[in-house]
Amino acid sequence: MPFRSAFSQLFTQDTIIAWVVFGLVIVAMTGAMGYSWYRGRKGMGPLKAAEANRLELGYAGALIGMVVFLVISSFAANAKDYPDPPKPAVTVTVTGYQWCWRFHYEGTPVTSSGQCQGLRDLPVLEVPIGQPVRLNVTATDVLHAVWVPQWRFKLYAYPGHVNSITITIPRAGRWIARCAQLCGVYHYEMDFWLRAVPPATFQRFLRTGRP
């Protein structure tokens, strides 16, 4: 199961359902406007009936059916998304603080961070391609949140609490990560890079501490 593929499946499915519902309502409204115009031309007054119990019950039944389907797909996606995490190849403690990030690679002396003055010299979180990486996310002062938009995952960082997520990045590249929790004045530039490198390069990084 590729990492976070549940997102795009569910998002596509529910967006299609949303468009269909939206289309039906628009059709019904347009139809009602046309019907009103027609009744006006024929000199008919407004309809008197104010309920149609059987129709309403049938409609409610259909709604319930749709909701059952939506709930099941939500549960399924959630279970598929975060199954029992594979044994991580490497564990990184990701610490947010006003207004920067620090990465400590567990079992090694390597800790990296950045200057975080404006958007130059951003911290870089190095991960090996294709290997499960456990992120232990925490904070030292106020709430922060790790968000890598391109990989569709987000996790809040609480002071005094560790949240964990296991990510597997399948290909080489560099993606921006942003803080997604209001954390004070410089929240808007509290970014870092997530970089996936071949495992050999990653091992060299762990030995030397330099990317």
Partner: peptide, 19 residues
């Protein structure tokens, strides 16, 4: 309302939450 149903799915909200 319909986008509300989207974000009622944790699997979707992990991405769009706080955005």
């Amino acid at each position: 309302g319909l986008t509300g149903i989207l974000v009622a799915n944790p699997a979707i909200d992990y991405h769009v939450n706080n955005s």
